[in-house]
Amino acid sequence: MIEIVNLKKSFDEKIVLRNVNLKVYDGEKLVIIGRSGCGKSVLLKNILNLMQPDRGYILVDQVPIKKVSQRDLFYLRKQFGFLFQGSALFDSMTVAENIALPLVEHTDLSPKEIKIQVAEKLEMVGLPGIENLKPSELSGGMKKRVALARAIIMNPKYVLYDEPTTGLDPIMAANIDHLINELNDRLNVTSIIVTHDMQSVSRIADRVVMLHMGMIMFEGSVEELHTTDNPIVYQFVHAKMDGPIQPKPLKY
């Protein structure tokens, strides 16, 4: 279980996360929605301690991730897969080397076994046989899927997806959503998915939260998301131009 308690994060003067409280239960698929720039990626990075909160704390399986030693931090991180919004593939390495890196670094598997696992994961994300390409030779959507393969290669307990279907065609997006569901059902992975794709939300979410003005301002099921009378959520979900949210973000 991941518990986020009273989290506050600002950059210089700008407050991004004001006070976030959130629990993520084992085995669930939690979707986080919110406007562009509202701090969703920042929140995910805080969970892995890639950024440190100014105030508040995060417990991963009861362990405060900000306080632990580097060794323990790395131990915790090995249980996570993180799909970066920008893929963050290592551009000096081939696709296969990218995906294999955690296995090479953290396990004693033989090169042959690693090769098999890499091929398997590439198959899962719908990109078989591209092992020897460099990231620069891939399209944006392909990079995203290679990054997804890398995120799940260690069979993590938690997977954090930062916009997994952005930049994918609708069919591929449906496939990736299916993959997220599969991982959840078959391997009991706990997933946090940040997305702007409302179709995805309907396909995958067990629970949805909306981040707005640095706080969790809605929490509920997909059904509740669509029927809520909260004007902000309503405007967001139904993509209305008129409503409480205006294109210029309010002053934080």
Partner: peptide
């Protein structure tokens, strides 16, 4: 700047 350092950290590689 392309988050590859963060990616290393996230993969528990110093």
């Amino acid at each position: 700047v392309t988050e590859q350092i963060d990616a290393l950290e996230a993969l528990a590689i110093d």
